[in-house]
Write a protein that binds this DNA or RNA. Structure first.
Lengths: 162, 162
DNA sequence: CAGTATCCATAAAGATACTG
DNA sequence: CAGTATCTTTATGGATACTG
């Protein structure tokens, strides 16, 4: 029953391309502290010390993680200056960072529903008030159950002349 | 422009609950090798040595990761016996494991579109042939852009008697 | 094929102190 | 507030050898 099998996914597609996007993603943002920093960034945190405090890691770890995430393009450093203070930087999500959030919310949803906790925290679609969840959807608007999900290697892009 | 802000998410909801599902999820399945094992499991791999070979980790790491994932309920060990061979175990996805796949595919999609690679690998909705991607969707069927996503703390569940 | 055990290198994180 | 630097502990993983 829980066994998924079959050739929906072309196994060789990975090796054909050589490198797996999942592996690369884990390499740039796959640490627990990185994930929690992304959560905080989405949440509106921008200051170094706030990240350290809210994620619960040391400044050294905060520094390392923040630098890596900026380097990877998920966050960007923006200068700001409070009245009477020196200029500082704040860390804000880039578009790539925003695009990363489905990863974070997928983890949230899985943990919420499959790990012991009171489950009272819910993702919500603010305008309509309904609960929200992470789904796989196709370009024709279908919700894609895992059994119908495949992987393909698209042909090299070419100019439309020929 | 890339700055997300505002109180869409009740910041204190995390602390009110005490523990973050994202953090817990990272704790049980947040290692790169665990993520890749999940990819392989979805992909149809069930044998110990195949996991080791395809994920590219040692048997020791495979053993540790597989045990943790079974312990966490993402995989289950099923006995099988090939003709003339002794009984062995194979590792297959449980329902919780299947439910975890959006995390994996969200990483795939992010890496595919935001990290340097040829981007030729695509998730596909097999029945209709269209490309698929990970989205946040609400129970009313709306696609939820990140700006409309919130978090709430639902009241304790009670019997419907009163 | 399906593991377990051991030893070693590396990397990540906590504690703490210091700088502007 | 916003970091950097250092030191130590722990976690992770590779290499390798051994068992059923």
């Amino acid at each position: 029953m829980p066994v998924l099998q079959g050739p929906l996914v072309d196994r060789d597609a990975w090796s054909a391309v050589g490198e797996c996007p999942i592996e690369k993603t884990m390499a740039v943002a796959g640490q627990k502290s990185a994930m929690l920093i992304m959560r905080e960034a989405y949440y509106g945190t921008t200051r170094f010390d706030d990240f350290a405090k809210r994620v619960g890691i040391t400044k050294a770890a905060t520094s390392a993680r923040l630098s890596e995430l900026v380097e990877a393009g998920l966050l960007t450093k923006q200068p700001y200056r409070e009245p009477g203070q020196r200029a500082r930087d704040e860390y804000v999500l880039t578009q790539a960072g925003v695009d990363f959030m489905p990863v974070v919310w997928a983890m949230f949803e899985w943990g919420r529903s499959h790990l012991p906790n009171n489950g009272r925290l819910r993702l919500t679609h603010v305008p309509c008030g309904a609960d929200a969840h992470v789904e796989i959807v196709c370009d024709n608007g279908h919700s894609v159950p895992l059994e119908e999900l495949g992987m393909r290697l698209v042909p090299q892009k070419r100019p439309e002349s020929g």
